[in-house]
Design a protein around this nucleic acid. Structure first.
Length: 872
RNA sequence: GCCCCUGUGGCGGAAUUGGUAGACGCGGCAGACUCAAAAUCUGUUGUUCGCAAGGACGUGCUGGUUCGACUCCGGCCAGGGGCACCA
């Protein structure tokens, strides 16, 4: 080592290449080398097994955040590992580039959305490139580019042709702050997911994708997505919301028509005491024409909509229409028909029968309007003659009572019996209904993909001919007023009708941005094709073998992508059944929060932590309150800028720390002390490999006889580590892989000088294996070490090390010896020693003898290579 | 309200899936080097009793199954997430 002392101390001042690993110099150098060799450019090759790794593409906000660093590091480990395993890997990157923030920037800063977006993309691309990700940048796409949305418009036309797109007048969720329509999924607790504004109901003509055409398929296929987290499958299952029930049609007294209701409890028909209609039900609207009171009630229901007041009160209210529905099995009994505010037109038939004894809402309603409550299911063993329901409905299984031909059956049996009877009588049938609704995609915004349709007074709605695509966004839109800039534009919407040539109007709605992200994974397979996708390419690359992203997209994005895959298949674009065969959902990156004495949030870099755990303001020395761990957010200032971390420690350290400690699916804490530890490890590795160079074997033949005990021990450690790290990476247990690599580096550092040709060979094998194993996680350092070990070829192109099974298992194993289940000793035995040998060795141990206190062993349990338990 | 997940040292977490609880990292303590500090290296670090050998206790709480339970089962408690007038 050199005599220099003042350098090489702080991460801020690394120096000469011989003293320390200089990431500042090395990282850009290796990135340039990878780019020059085009190591990560993917090409379809049917002769090779493919592996498509994809992380959810980012919204170009302008800066990357720690969540991105974690997401892209996880994906990159998989990509680099698979490449080393010989797969033809596709690992692309793009930009989810349409969306409202660009229009807000235009309004607030006077920058055009396109200029703002492309500048952000350039900034973020540069940041991502510094991370050393093994991406095929040749395939980069941005959804706001006409070369992308042009193909999306073509897909829209194809879906339209296939009957999967339609237009209907619908009550929509209107966000008054963003002046746009939101999908049901984008309304969270009655508020817009982006603006947080209270959402109103409005009736508008909207474009819909017929996702319900695939409801059964989307649900049934979930069980085959074995490499998806169970929890995501469950969330989608709940979202689709399958429920089995029956329709029952009631005759209406004094009218020729009938009322059809939907119920999941047809078995409770004899307990029915009223019927109720949705305020939007056609019959309700018809009756309202001659009934001012009813009209007022319906108007009131709509006005309330999903406003705050409605959410808070949530009171069940109804209006008696005066109509009577005749009970289908009890001649002469009739039920009042109400319009009720809690019945949804979109679910079932928009009408129900109420059985208060066995449904809590119906019970509340019945009590309010003094309707009868007749129990028809009693708990098993209860006396049917005096079983009654007070203010809690009885929802469990039991025995049918007061129900004529159903009496004595259980709930499941009664359901079957009544459905049989309804079907025989022709007044109902068993059906399955779903919660899932069609996907409303119209947005009254500028910065989105224009919907390629034209409204003609003579021809109606006419698709834009494919040859006229793309329908480009006008560049000269104005953003200073609320509402849709496309609709306000002086001439953009005026076109001639493709059918009759007369003046017509363009559709001014643009697509929900979830449409853009519903097929980008397919576009990556042939990103410059003159058609949405090239069949041969998508059929080779799809499905995505490993998709990585945040749990927040568990429902919307993933369900829409699954729909799009099916819709594109129906249009002949691809043959994949599912878009993502493997899914991994990562946890969030969290950080402590800090507040000063005035209660103002502080950035972590302005806070000084003291050894006793307290914290002070770095500049003023004032007291700082340390708050709990929370997901990083700008509003709480508990953010750490990835750029600053990479400046200070390098990309490899940031990547390594991201993978250490916390399992990737769990939330993690970004702790500065942990980062320092990761940085120290990079330097230790550098010293380990360069400090005591392993001689090159130079092709000299090494035979088994050359390996002494120390060499063999080292070789066993090496092969055990290879096997362990390989398994950990396969299973996404990156934190365990990291722990193993720390352990192996410690073993290697402690293994000393050793002697002889065999040891030198074993040491070199160990160092090369270590270098290859860290490569997916710390790719730059690994290349540097690989070069130091004398290799001329890039490590990025080298294969993954193979573990020799003969060296993975130890020859001598340690067994635990218990007496009555308590650990008393450990004994060392040859691997797979005979049970009798193990038993004798255990009983001979002095600690064991003492614990047995002279008593005889009643029973001895031997688990080979693990444990001997002596029962006395 | 319904559904799901998680609870292990001072902290992040590990435990071959029923077989030596606490690997690995962070932090702490002690020591070496240094005029001193930083960096680096060595040792130590669940609690507790004991000079020691050694013992007792210990995976949210509680009961059970088992030769043996962080792991399986029942009942609680706490934290987090999803859905929520869905008939």
């Amino acid at each position: 080592m050199s005599g220099r002392t003042s350098e090489a101390t702080s991460p801020r001042a690394p120096t000469g290449p011989d003293a320390r690993y200089n990431f500042r110099e090395a990282e850009p150098r290796w990135q340039a080398a990878w780019a020059e060799r085009r190591c990560f450019a993917a090409e379809a090759d049917p002769a090779r097994p493919k592996y498509y790794v994809l992380e959810m593409f980012p919204y170009p906000s302008g800066r990357i955040h720690m969540g991105h660093v974690r997401n892209y590091t996880l994906g990159d480990v998989v990509a680099r590992y698979r490449r080393a395993r010989g797969f033809n890997v596709l690992h692309p990157m793009g930009w989810d580039a349409f969306g409202l923030p660009a229009e807000n920037a235009a309004r607030d800063q006077g920058i055009h959305p396109a200029a703002w977006t492309y500048a952000n993309i350039a900034a973020m691309r540069a940041e991502l490139k510094r991370m050393g990700l093994s991406l095929d940048w040749d395939r980069e796409i941005a959804t706001c580019h006409p070369e992308y949305y042009r193909h999306q418009q073509k897909l829209f036309l194809d879906l339209f042709e296939a009957g999967l797109v339609y237009r209907k007048e619908a009550w929509v969720n209107w966000d008054p702050v963003d002046s746009t329509v939101l999908a049901n999924e984008q309304v969270i607790e009655g508020r817009g997911w982006r603006s947080g504004a209270v959402v109103e109901k409005r009736l508008l003509s909207q474009w819909f994708f017929k996702i319900t055409a695939y409801t059964e398929e989307l649900l049934a296929a979930l069980k085959d997505l074995e490499r998806w987290p169970e929890r995501v499958r469950l969330m989608q299952e709940n979202w689709i919301g399958r429920s089995e029930g029956a329709t029952i049609s009631f005759a209406l007294a004094g009218r020729g028509d009938r009322l059809e209701v939907f119920t999941t409890r047809p078995d409770t028909i004899f307990g029915a005491s009223f019927c109720a209609l949705s305020p939007a039900h056609p019959l309700a609207l018809e009756l309202a024409r001659d009934n001012a009171g009813l009209g007022a009630f319906i108007a009131e229901c709509h006005a309330l909509g999903t406003t705050e007041a409605a959410l808070e009160t949530a009171e069940k209210r109804g209006f008696d229409t005066g109509l009577k529905a005749e009970h289908p099995f009890r001649p002469g009994v009739s039920l009042p028909v109400y319009v009720a505010n809690f019945i949804l037109m979109e679910y079932g038939t928009g009408a129900i029968f109420g059985c208060p004894a066995h449904d809590q809402r119906d019970l509340d309603f019945a009590r309010k309007y003094a309707l009868p409550v007749l129990p028809v299911v009693a708990p098993p063993g209860a006396d049917p003659s005096n079983f009654a329901v007070a203010d809690t409905a009885f929802l469990e299984d039991g025995v049918l009572i007061n129900s004529e031909f159903l009496d004595g059956l259980d709930v499941a049996g009664a359901k079957r019996a009544i459905i049989d009877r309804l079907e025989r009588d022709g007044i109902g049938r068993g059906i399955v209904v779903y919660r899932l609704r069609d996907w409303g995609i119209s947005r009254q915004r500028y910065w989105g993909c224009p919907i390629p349709m034209i409204h003609c007074d003579a021809c109606g709605i006419v698709p834009v001919p494919a040859r006229d695509l793309p329908v480009r966004l006008p560049e000269d839109a104005a953003f200073d007023k609320p509402g849709n800039p496309l609709d306000r534009h002086p001439d953009w919407k005026h076109v001639s009708c493709p059918g009759c040539g007369r003046p017509a109007r363009r559709e001014t709605d643009t697509c929900d941005t979830f449409v853009d992200s519903s097929w980008y994974f397919a576009r990556f397979c042939s990103p410059r094709a003159d058609e949405p996708v090239t069949r041969a390419d998508v059929d080779y690359w799809l499905p995505v073998d490993q998709y990585v992203g945040g749990i927040e997209h568990a429902i919307l994005h993933l369900l829409y992508s699954r729909f799009f895959t099916r819709a594109m298949r129906a249009c002949g674009h691809l043959s994949a059944e599912e878009p993502f065969s493997g899914l991994f959902t990562q946890g969030m990156v969290c950080h402590e929060t800090y507040k000063d004495t005035g209660g103002k949030w502080l950035y972590p870099e302005d806070v000084l932590k003291r050894p006793d755990g307290s914290a002070v303001h770095a500049a003023t020395g004032g007291k700082v309150t340390v708050g709990r761990l929370e997901s990083m957010s700008k509003s709480k200032k508990n953010v750490v800028d990835p750029g600053a971390i990479i400046d200070k420690y390098g990309a490899d350290t940031a990547r390594w720390f991201m993978l250490s400690d916390s399992p990737p699916e769990r939330d993690m804490e970004w702790a500065s002390a942990g980062v320092e530890g990761a940085y120290r490890f990079t330097q230790r590795l550098w010293k380990l490999v360069t400090g005591a160079p392993a001689p090159e074997s130079g092709g000299a033949a090494v035979t088994a006889g050359d390996f002494g005990a120390d060499a063999l021990a080292l070789r066993r450690a090496t092969h055990k580590t290879i096997a362990g790290v390989t398994e950990d990476i396969e299973k996404f247990h990156f934190n365990r892989a990291v722990a193993r690599l720390y352990e192996f580096a410690n073993t290697l550092a402690d293994s000393g000088a050793g002697s002889g040709l065999g040891f030198a060979w074993a040491r070199r094998e160990a160092l090369e294996s270590l270098t290859r194993l860290i490569a997916p996680m710390m790719p730059h350092l690994a290349e540097e070490l690989w070069e130091q070990l004398g290799h001329r070829e890039l490590l990025a192109l080298a294969p993954w090390p193979e573990a020799d099974p003969a060296l993975v298992d130890d020859l001598i194993v340690t067994l635990a010896v218990q007496v009555n289940g308590k650990l008393r000793a450990t004994i060392a035995l040859p691997r797979d020693a005979d049970r009798r040998v193990a038993e004798e060795a255990a009983l001979a141990d002095e600690h064991v003898r003492r614990a047995m206190a002279g008593k005889a062993a009643r029973k001895v349990i031997v688990v080979p290579n693990r444990v001997v338990n002596v029962v006395v």
